[in-house]
Write a protein that binds this DNA or RNA. Sequence first.
DNA 1: TGTACATCAGTGAACGCGCGTTCACTGATGTAC
DNA 2: TGTACATCAGTGAACGCGCGTTCACTGATGTAC
Lengths: 219, 219
Amino acid sequence: MLDEIKTVARQHLATDGANLSLRAVARDMGMVSSAIYRYFPSRDDLLTALIIEAYNALGDAVEAAAAGPDRLDLRARWHAACRAARDWALTHPAEYALLYGSPVPGYAAPDDTVSPAQRPPLTLVGLLREGLETGLLSPPPADELSTPLHDDLTELADVFFTGIPPALLARGMAGWTQLFGLISFELFGRLNQTVAHRDEYFDHQVGLLADLIGLPQPR
Amino acid sequence: MLDEIKTVARQHLATDGANLSLRAVARDMGMVSSAIYRYFPSRDDLLTALIIEAYNALGDAVEAAAAGPDRLDLRARWHAACRAARDWALTHPAEYALLYGSPVPGYAAPDDTVSPAQRPPLTLVGLLREGLETGLLSPPPADELSTPLHDDLTELADVFFTGIPPALLARGMAGWTQLFGLISFELFGRLNQTVAHRDEYFDHQVGLLADLIGLPQPR
DNA sequence: TGTACATCAGTGAACGCGCGTTCACTGATGTAC
DNA sequence: TGTACATCAGTGAACGCGCGTTCACTGATGTAC
């Protein structure tokens, strides 16, 4: 039952965006709207459940993709992870918008969403860590950061990204930001009438960021 | 009157997001809701007017900033333009979300919004053009693009970005995408509890993209 | 094997609220003769 | 200078719709004796 509600709710996200209506979901299930309350205490709880599931689905896809290629081919793994994120977003546009679009007015994501939300960026930065450990990736010069930023990113690395030098972390975050920007632009229609070959465009842009990060070219 | 309605409507965007309510706007103006119809034929037309104004405000800010520094200091101009976009977004978060957040369900932006929307990216790519003309910027190797992408971007350049080689255009678009991603992440709360020194972080990330594009370091 | 009872998924009506849009109207202002 | 008329900004009631949430309830299922 819980699953059926969530499935129908997901379909509604696709048409109504984040303005998810409990009544519409109930209607589609052939139930009366109050029946939903047996399963979810409120509309926001249903939304939260959908968000957590979506983050995890995206996280699963990205993690699996990053584990696919040869472990030492960081660039292939980077591309695979990014493509997986994009593929998931293109097949689940409404859920992507729910996660990364404008915040839903009046809805504050509870703490349970934090850790699933970290999975994709953790995966990407994980590649950088492996690069350092295997010596395939050399960190950028340590002095390219201003002191306050150096301190911020050192602290951030200590908490979530152990062992990543701050200047490299900044580049990893640049990659994650770019990935998000590329997907959002494509999904929200900024590429319409501009670029026809979306796959090639995406791969190229992801490759540029891999260069910036310093991922080694395949031999 | 038109201006007053738009001003009040802008304030409402800030709290309700894109679910702009005509009735709420009228209420705040001490009018009856039907009175709005003397000025705007429908809610969507009001939304469109707000969108166009917002694009133009952002465009003004970005263009003015890019014209500020020494004409030949492309990097300073790039930074200034990006900072102007971010500043505008931070001071007008709701309008930024309206422009670049998830699409409003049921609303399709009419054609009048297209050309104001192009102003910021046109400004950024304009810097690249000036770099080419003055010889300060050398285009990336032409063969780094696959054929279909090369063709797409050549065509795009012919229409909107005359004289920009496709591989450079791709990098310019990377910069524009990154700018959008950086601002969105900051505005939508992804940097909360992560990076305290937002200005430095932004400048650093913008600088990294300037490197990628090949903007010359200041002497 | 048969009755009494508890569980619990789902019902249906209601509350109080919001919305966009239409439509006949009032009443002040300004113009024309 | 004074009256008649047109303009037009804003009114107020209504239509028909949607929403989240509460609450007393029905009625089928399963369990206990």
